[in-house]
């Protein structure tokens, strides 16, 4: 369980959110919704350790948890970025195996086997040797999901997973997220897409823009 207690974040005096508290149960899907500019992505960046909190605490299974400091090998939070940020010079397979090999010190064989398994699950098995520029938007997203999963995170976060996709692909993402839920993954989805949020969420959390 991830618990956020009275967290506050501001940029140069501008408060993004203040005294925000939130709990995410294991295996559930939390959707963070709200207008753009409301600080949804900032929340995700704080949880994944890309931004520092001003105040407040994060607890993971009851233990204080600092995603910035915990740079040891247990990858806790995985992130699927809005624009995916695949590494353009690496093949799909290399994109997925790079971090497990470098950060988790997995052997090449172990990493490749795990990656191929993930690719099969995400119906990308035939794309292993392609480069990101050869993939469609939906395929890139699934590679990004596979890359995050390869680090065996406890929680997987998505930033606007539907925004870069054709409407038809929304259902596909939904299916993947629900498939991961069935496998026990805890997931946080940041989205401005209300309808999508309602279809997948166990819990929704609305962030309102702060009055200054």
């Amino acid at each position: 369980m991830l618990e956020l207690k009275n967290i506050t974040k501001s940029f140069n005096q501008r408060i993004v959110w203040k005294n925000l508290s939130l709990k995410i149960q294991d295996g559930q899907i939390l959707c963070v919704v709200g207008q753009s500019g409301g600080g949804k992505t900032t929340l995700l960046r704080c949880i994944s350790g890309l931004e520092r909190l001003d105040k407040g605490q994060m607890l993971l299974d009851g233990q204080p948890f600092d995603p910035i400091a915990s740079r040891n090998n247990d990858a806790v939070i995985g992130v699927v970025f809005q624009d995916f940020q695949l590494f353009p010079h690496l093949t799909v397979l290399e994109n997925i195996t790079l971090a497990p090999k470098l950060a988790l010190k997995e052997s090449n064989q172990t990493a490749v086997e795990a990656a191929r398994e993930l690719l099969t699950k995400l119906s990308l098995a035939d794309k292993a040797d392609l480069y990101p520029y050869q993939l469609s938007g939906g395929q890139k997203q699934r590679v990004a999901i596979a890359r995050a999963l390869a680090m065996k995170p406890k929680i997987l976060c998505y930033d606007e997973p539907t925004s870069a996709l054709d409407p038809g692909l929304r259902d596909k993402v939904k299916a993947i997220i629900l498939q991961l839920k069935a496998a026990g993954m805890t997931q946080i989805v940041v989205t401005h897409d209300w309808e999508f949020a309602q279809q997948i969420a166990d819990q929704t959390f609305k962030i309102e823009p702060q009055k200054q």
Partner: peptide
């Protein structure tokens, strides 16, 4: 900059 960030959440060190 997103390339650095995605490397960071994948736990790569700066030099990696």
């Amino acid at each position: 900059p997103g390339q650095y960030e995605s490397a960071k959440v994948l736990r790569l060190t700066y030099w990696q």
